[in-house]
């Protein structure tokens, strides 16, 4: 399952009303892999968080499939994310005291009781798929690459049709970053997940179907990447 994205007249403002990000129009078909690049402070992460429905105040339209996200209440946006959006962060954001399965299956804790066992099983399967099947120890002892793979397993275990990644390789060395990119792209393609990744990492950007360049809060380039 995949979800397409349609953005129209999106504007994100600061609490004082200054426009931080403006995107007149953007169409992303379901299952596409999109990279967002640009200088630091350009508004890349802001766009990503706006697409996830995490930012206020915001105006315009962000439509995922048939769902107009910005028209939803905060509670419905949260429910939408739980069902449809996986997120990966630069510094992993794991619960250091939990083991890898505990972190990968953390969303099971707030899922309906009937879904919990299946989600945990998927989390363990994803960990195995990513080479972390014997990691029953606290993630505090993990390397950066291992941690980010746990974060990917967490995102994929939820079977979300959309994966939003914010600088997923920024905290990793080159070898670990390349392995992570391989895993991330392979998983997204296998499952038809729509992947939108903000990154400075050209190795990652080059593996996307399409690259958006953001500068000073505006889209300055939108190009497809040749296969």
């Amino acid at each position: 399952m995949s979800l397409s994205l349609s953005v129209n007249g999106l504007e994100v403002r600061s609490p004082r009303g200054r426009v931080l990000m403006s995107l007149p129009s953007l169409e992303v078909p379901g299952g596409a892999l999109v990279g967002i690049r640009g200088p630091s402070g350009a508004g890349k992460s802001t766009l990503l968080y706006a697409l996830a429905g995490l930012l206020e105040p915001v105006s315009g339209s962000v439509r995922w499939g048939d769902t107009e996200l910005l028209a939803q209440s905060a509670g419905r946006r949260t429910a939408f994310r739980a069902a449809n959006v996986g997120m990966i962060f630069q510094d992993f954001l794991l619960f250091e005291e939990l083991d890898a399965p505990g972190n990968a299956g953390v969303t099971a804790l707030f899922r309906p009781r009937a879904e919990r066992a299946a989600l945990r099983a998927r989390a363990e399967a994803q960990l195995a798929r990513l080479g972390l099947d014997d990691a029953q120890r606290s993630v505090a002892s993990f390397s950066g690459g291992e941690r980010q793979r746990v974060a990917i397993a967490r995102a994929m275990a939820a079977q979300a049709p959309v994966l939003l990644a914010d600088e997923p390789t920024a905290s990793l060395d080159r070898a670990a970053a390349d392995r992570l990119i391989d895993d991330l792209v392979a998983l997204a393609r296998e499952t038809g997940t729509t992947l939108i990744a903000v990154s400075h990492d050209l190795h990652l950007i080059e593996r996307m179907d399409r690259v958006l360049t953001i500068s000073d809060g505006a889209l300055t380039e939108d190009r497809s990447v040749a296969a």
């Binding site: 996830a52 995490l54 905060a74 509670g75 949260t78 429910a79 939408f80 994310r81 739980a82 069902a83 959006v85 997120m87 962060f89 954001l93 619960f95 953390v106 969303t107 804790l109 707030f110 967490r154 939820a158």
Partner: peptide, 16 residues
């Protein structure tokens, strides 16, 4: 607060 924000970003209901 980062852990709390993470949970909310992952779709955890407010009550959780």
């Amino acid at each position: 607060r980062r852990q709390v924000a993470l949970l909310r970003a992952l779709g955890a209901p407010s009550r959780f």
